[in-house]
């Protein structure tokens, strides 16, 4: 089953990169980055999945003694939790800078920002 999640993740990364490279509007570029970010997170979680195992939470169904055979890899989930939170921070920062750029130039079209172009 994990190939479904992997394929979706790869497709989301491709959609995000395509959007970021072809769009001219800064807000659309930010949305594209968020989509690509989601794809990466999905892939990392999918890599930790293992067939016929359950979530890494010990309770009545998974006794601590049989955890080795019953749970999936908990590490990718912990890493993705970090990545999601940092992703929110990055998106908020990008939006703030987009607002600042709009305030200075009055436009969100990236082709009118030529200061760093050579």
């Amino acid at each position: 089953m994990s190939w479904v999640a992997l394929t979706t993740g790869f497709i989301l990364i491709l959609i995000g990169l395509y959007g970021a490279l072809t769009n001219r509007n800064i807000l659309r570029i930010i949305v594209s980055f968020s989509i690509a970010n989601t794809g990466v997170n999905l892939i990392i979680v999918a890599v930790g999945y293992m067939a016929s195992r359950t979530a890494p939470i010990l309770d009545k169904t998974v006794a601590p003694t049989e955890a080795l055979e019953r749970i999936i890899d908990p590490l990718p989930q912990a890493l993705v939790l970090t990545a999601i939170v940092i992703g929110v921070g990055v998106t908020a920062l990008m939006l703030t800078y987009a607002f600042k750029l709009y305030e200075v130039k009055g436009t969100l079209d990236i082709s009118s920002y030529k200061e760093l172009k050579w």
Binding site: P64, A67, A78
Partner: peptide
């Protein structure tokens, strides 16, 4: 992951390994 699965219950005592 094997280390975490084996030692979380005895060392940390948290049911949620993540």
């Amino acid at each position: 992951a094997r280390y975490y699965a084996k030692h979380t219950a005895t060392d940390i005592g948290a049911a949620n390994i993540v």
